[in-house]
């Protein structure tokens, strides 16, 4: 059985001043499979995440929708919190009601209506989401540096000092790049070779 939790973030007044957060929570409760809905001042804050984790456990939620800022900002943050609550992090959907709603619409009524549409879209998507697992791929621990001027040499030395193999490649017959052509370098006038 799907049990979706919807969490609406006020983002201080960023969202709350343009979106009627309470009525958004009310409308979210009406959506199919939504088992719980709540709002909080700052979902991304420590107490906000705690609320999320506790609610998932308390209400036995298995899908989460967070209505907040753009997923490009805090998707990772919330995925970690969802994971901490024992859920697969990919069972999270975010409704972008800040950048793409509260910040771009002046009319409170319209913004609230749009926010509820965005939440219902996110809930619909969450209803169809499934747990995803990443695969692990072993890596070759050696580095290719293309270009052996000061940038390439410095990178090669730093990585090599950490114990990894480096191939330092240059198309010229010698390494050194432009830097070795220089006489002294500003502002200290020390030598460049």
């Amino acid at each position: 059985m799907k049990r979706i939790g919807v969490f609406v973030c006020h983002c201080g007044t960023n969202i709350a001043s343009k979106v009627d957060v309470r009525s958004l929570v009310e409308s979210a409760r009406e959506l199919q499979d939504v088992a719980y809905a709540a709002d909080y001042q700052f979902m991304c804050s420590e107490p906000g995440q705690k609320l999320l984790v506790n609610s998932i456990r308390e209400h036995d939620l298995n899908r989460v929708v967070i209505a907040s800022c753009t997923p490009r900002l805090h998707e990772e943050t919330f995925r970690k919190a969802v994971k901490a609550a024992g859920l697969n992090p990919y069972l999270l959907e975010i409704a972008n009601i800040r950048e793409q709603c509260a910040w771009v619409h002046d009319d409170r009524e319209e913004a609230t209506r749009k926010a509820s549409e965005l939440v219902s879209m996110a809930v619909a998507k969450a209803r169809n989401s499934s747990a995803l697992d990443s695969t692990r791929i072993p890596i070759t621990k050696s580095l290719l540096v293309i270009g052996a001027g000061i940038a390439g040499i410095q990178t090669a030395l730093d990585v090599a000092d950490n114990g990894y193999d480096v191939m330092l490649l240059d198309r010229e017959p010698t390494i050194g790049g432009n830097m070795v052509k220089l006489d002294k370098t500003f502002p200290t006038l020390d030598c460049s070779a």
């Binding site: 753009t70 490009r72 972008n96 950048e99 771009v104 619409h105």
Partner: peptide, 20 residues
């Protein structure tokens, strides 16, 4: 870009819904 519009508080009508 839509996020950027928000960041710059550019206004547009509310009858557009974005699917990411």
């Amino acid at each position: 870009g839509a996020d950027l519009a928000g960041l710059n508080r550019k206004k547009y009508p509310a009858n557009l819904l974005v699917v990411r």
